[in-house]
């Protein structure tokens, strides 16, 4: 009788406690919950680059992909672009691809930027912000590192140094 009371009470308290813990956890993580988190399969997408070539993420299976979201108006993006370009030229023969997604700007502006900074890697414009939405990108620049199996291994927001770029590319070398 007493034992049963203890068991019943324990079960009821555990159920209530679990509900409370879940609610608190969900509340704490609601702002930081990522759409695409480390360990997730990177959502596939298709974009056309400035030269008219089609790039589909899943076509790069077997290679590491350095996926960078940016805008010409964002100062840290401007800073890190030359570093990415340098490292791209180092790593492109070692199976690391750079895909650079501009958010909803005009071709004129992006082309001017590419000419000014002499960028060699493919640059594409996400005209309807669909890829940005799929990846849940909020602040620019944002960089996703995707390994040869298409899994996200790192997510970084904010400016990158050249060392960081090198380290990142090294980490996704197949």
């Amino acid at each position: 009788m007493k034992k049963r009371r203890l068991v019943t009470r324990t079960i009821i308290l555990l159920v209530l406690g679990a509900a409370v813990v879940y609610t608190l956890y969900a509340n704490f993580t609601k702002d930081s919950r990522l759409k695409v988190d480390v360990g997730d399969q990177a959502p596939d997408f298709v974009l056309i680059d400035m030269d008219g070539n089609k790039h589909q993420l899943s076509d790069y299976r077997g290679q590491g992909v350095f996926l960078n979201f940016w805008g010409t108006w964002c100062p840290p993006c401007k800073k890190e672009m030359p570093y990415i370009n340098n490292q791209y030229n180092q790593f492109k023969d070692q199976g690391v691809q750079v895909l650079s997604v501009d958010i909803q700007e005009s071709e004129l502006v992006v082309n001017q930027f590419v000419e000014q900074y002499k960028l060699d890697f493919p640059i594409m414009i996400d005209k309807d912000k669909e890829v940005m939405t799929a990846y849940g990108v909020d602040l620019l620049p944002a960089t996703f590192l995707i390994d040869k199996n298409g899994k996200v291994v790192k997510y970084h927001t904010g400016e990158l140094t050249e060392d960081k770029v090198r380290e990142f590319m090294e980490s996704i070398k197949p």
């Binding site: 997408f45 298709v46 589909q56 594409m124 669909e130 890829v131 939405t133 799929a134």
Partner: peptide, 9 residues
């Protein structure tokens, strides 16, 4: 959307 399309498509 009819069928499935990838983001960007």
């Amino acid at each position: 959307e009819k069928g499935e399309s990838l983001p960007g498509e």
